[in-house]
Design a protein around this nucleic acid. Structure first.
Lengths: 152, 152
DNA sequence: TATTGTTATACTCTATAACTATA
DNA sequence: TATAGTTATAGAGTATAACAATA
């Protein structure tokens, strides 16, 4: 690490801070379709298949009442459908509606466009491409991480 | 893109969703030193030098009252110091205390460790290294993006 | 009794509108 | 008058504790 980097906090690359700022950009992007980042995460999970409320809480790393609160808003907006499970009526099955699917896709596009615009600030298309590819690497890492947690 | 990827939403790489989940991991990490991600962003900005409240709001992309609220908590905890500017007494200068500096460093370490652990779930040390190293590209892109916005 | 999810309640972060202090 | 920041207030997301329904 260079002397200049050691002198000023602003110039030291820091992975946590970088991820925190990327998230803010995503928040701004999905806000354009009136989604919070929490709502966006939940819709993304439901896009991978319907889910029980309990399993959502675990995957999202939040407590059950938080899931209830966010889902309430999504159900009111008609983006998610709540149905009691037939075999165990304590359980609640959640799934995306067509409208939810469509809003999620719009959010995905808005976020991707914003991130691509930011990556475009790097001088070369090669660097920009590497930045986007890097996110795909993190996607794989997060999937592997979740799988490892589920096995435990 | 393969057929398998087209079939299931879960397998399609999506930059926005990835960034949203990375942020959740950072949130969990900085929570270990009792910081929210908003507090973490603010401490990170103040680490780059003292700042006026108004300029923080702009950089954070939030409204002035939100800055007041978050700073209130940080001042109460002794992590940030508020002083009236001498030349224009309407303005408020904010800077990190030694304790704030130390908590921020602990948060940085916790976030970096968590991200490194997740990157470690990729098969090879080479991939893990690339994931971490290329996050610095995003750091550069975000710095360039902010600079471009300031010029406008 | 144990489990699933919700309700009650409180705290934080966000916003808009109205206000205070200063210029 | 205009500007910098705060106060008042409200909505969303988070939590813990207590509850209802079901197993």
């Amino acid at each position: 690490m260079s002397l200049e980097q050691l002198e000023a906090g602003s110039r030291v690359f820091n992975p946590g801070r970088t991820a925190a700022w990327l998230a803010k950009q995503v928040e701004l992007a999905v806000g354009s379709v009136d989604l919070s980042i929490s709502q966006y995460r939940i819709l993304g999970l439901l896009d991978q298949g319907s889910a029980m409320s309990s399993s959502l809480a675990e995957q999202l790393a939040v407590r059950p009442p938080s899931v209830t609160a966010v889902i309430d808003g999504l159900v009111t907006r008609g983006l998610v459908e709540r149905t009691h499970s037939e075999d165990d009526r304590r359980r609640i099955s959640l799934r995306l509606t067509a409208e939810g699917q469509s809003v999620l896709e719009a959010a995905d596009r808005a976020a991707a466009e914003r991130l691509e615009h930011i990556a475009g600030m790097l001088g070369s298309t090669r660097s920009s491409g590497r930045a986007m590819d890097n996110l795909s690497l993190w996607h794989q890492a997060l999937v592997a991480h979740r799988a490892a947690r589920e096995r435990r």
